[in-house]
Design a binder for these strands. Structure first.
Length: 430
RNA sequence: GGAACGGUGGCAGAGCGGACAAAUGCAUCCGCCUUGAAAGCGGAAGGCUCACAAGGCCCGGGGGUUCGAAUCCCUCCCGUUCCGCCA
């Protein structure tokens, strides 16, 4: 949620920043918020002065009753009653306005960082690094889509996954299943030097899913369990961000760094038929996430560090990759600045997004009400949040199968993963 | 799921219809004292809105009763204990 005070005090700045996202509708919404806000401020001033009168008169009533002057007290009670009625009417109006403002504000996206590149959409995302590890050419044995090779090796069984759960569910078997788990453990171990490992709940409340920005606007993308008013998390970012919701931290605690493995659930409502083969897009997948609650000043350095960490994981797996920056027209609702890491998959002949690292400025923290106190300073400040996928399992899994496929059809296991696969060096051909 | 009891400031804990933003203790901060510290003494200090004004709001959330609610009523949530069920 953007700061309504910023919108109020510097409407031109906010409008200019929103305009960079390329959706004129956003400016209309921002203006609507400004109108409602001005109106609501008039009303609340009036309401408060009525309340002040009621408070004053009530005090006098108390004093008169104590003094035994019942008649005078009753007169004042009549006055107070009618002031109270007026006050209640204004209060109701104010509450309605506030609800409308909040609803609009929750749907308004974050302001892009000044350094984020301008652009209209995906095609305008600049490559900021790479390709790295890209061979001059790929062998024909690498040009096989993983859903064919992995199925033949008996490590992927999507046909039965579909029987069990329907379309867009996947199932790995044997060394394939172990490879998924190995990737998680590899990522967690690589983050262990600087991040506290968390095992968060996978089902969360509506308030929790609202804090990170998925609700109210993107309700269709999430699985809901209506009977219990719970939602399946689309990423560990959701529970991790809300760990400190409603709390006031000390500046010295920042940044708080956390990492978590979690299953992720996505309805993929708008993406039917796109990249749905094999492991490219599924309703349920595993991911290791990294997250920080920080001060605004710590944001840029952490963003850099997070990108570096995600990159190091991919580089360690000996995969060809590149880093792109997300332009203003392609940026997610909550994002302030974002980078993606893409891995090249020769079998699919495409770049797969395997990691997304973002700085949210105070957009999520304001929704979640995560604040911090600066020593010697009165009041509190809203924190910043950052997060990134350390490693999203399925696409990395697919990239390993395709890139590391040998001429005999076996799959070479990258050295860093072998300890997690009980020493397995390769997945043998059949 | 059932029953009982609870939810008050950083923590503990009083208040249970009127002068309560809320006693007290601990913790915190600032003085004094001290070579320095502790102890002792004196003082300061909650959050939100907002212009660090005035005013308003905040005693788990929401609603109600009342001239007036931390205090009474309803409802929901959470916690503790007991019972039931259960990996």
């Amino acid at each position: 949620m953007i700061d309504i005070r910023l919108l109020r005090n510097e409407p031109a700045t906010v409008r200019a920043a929103l305009a960079r996202r390329g959706n004129p509708e956003l400016l209309v919404q921002a203006d609507a918020v400004l109108d409602l806000d001005a109106h609501s401020r008039d009303i609340v001033a009036h309401r408060d002065s009525l309340r002040a009168e009621v408070n004053e008169v009530s005090k006098q009533v108390g004093a008169l009753l104590k003094a035994g002057d019942v008649e005078a007290a009753e007169k004042l009670q009549d006055i107070s009653r009618s002031l109270g009625d007026d006050q209640r009417r204004l209060a109701a109006e104010y509450d309605e306005l506030q609800a409308s403002i909040r609803d609009l504000l929750l749907r308004l996206p974050n302001l892009p960082h000044p350094d984020a590149p301008d652009g209209a959409g995906e095609a305008d995302n600049p490559v900021v690094k790479g390709p790295v590890n890209m061979p001059a050419e790929f062998g024909t044995h690498q040009r096989v889509p993983h859903w064919e090779s992995a199925t033949a090796l008996g490590i992927l069984d999507n046909e039965r996954a579909t029987k069990i759960s329907g379309a867009m569910f996947t199932m790995q078997r044997g060394l394939g299943a172990m490879l998924s788990r190995a990737l998680c453990q590899y990522a967690l171990d690589q983050m262990a030097d600087a991040f506290e490992e968390i095992r968060p709940p996978s089902l969360v409340t509506t308030a929790t899913l609202t804090a990170t920005g998925q609700l109210p606007k993107f309700a269709d993308d999430a699985y809901s369990i209506e009977r219990d008013d719970l939602w399946c998390i689309p990423t560990a970012e959701v529970p991790l961000t809300s760990i400190y919701a409603g709390e006031v931290l000390d500046e010295v605690q920042l940044p708080i760094r956390m990492t978590a493995y979690s299953p992720c659930y996505r309805r993929e409502a708008g993406s039917a038929g796109r990249d749905t083969r094999g492991m490219l897009r599924a309703h349920e997948f595993d991911k290791v996430e990294i997250l920080a609650v920080a001060s605004p000043e710590q944001g840029p350095a952490l963003l850099n560090e997070f990108v570096g960490r995600a990159e190091a994981l991919i580089a360690g797996l000996e995969l060809p990759y590149r880093i792109i920056e997300i332009c203003t027209g392609d940026m997610g609702q909550s994002h302030h600045r974002s980078f993606d890491i893409e891995v090249y998959a020769p079998g699919c002949d495409s770049w797969l997004e395997v990691s997304s690292v973002s700085w949210f400025s105070d957009y999520q923290a304001r929704r979640a009400d995560i604040r911090y106190r600066v020593a010697g300073e009165k009041g509190t400040r809203i924190a910043n949040t950052l997060n990134g996928s350390a490693l999203a399992v399925p696409r990395v899994w697919a990239a390993i199968i395709e890139n590391h496929r040998q001429p005999d059809g076996s799959i070479a296991i990258p050295a860093v993963l072998r300890p997690y696969l009980r020493g397995t060096v390769s997945i043998p051909s059949r």
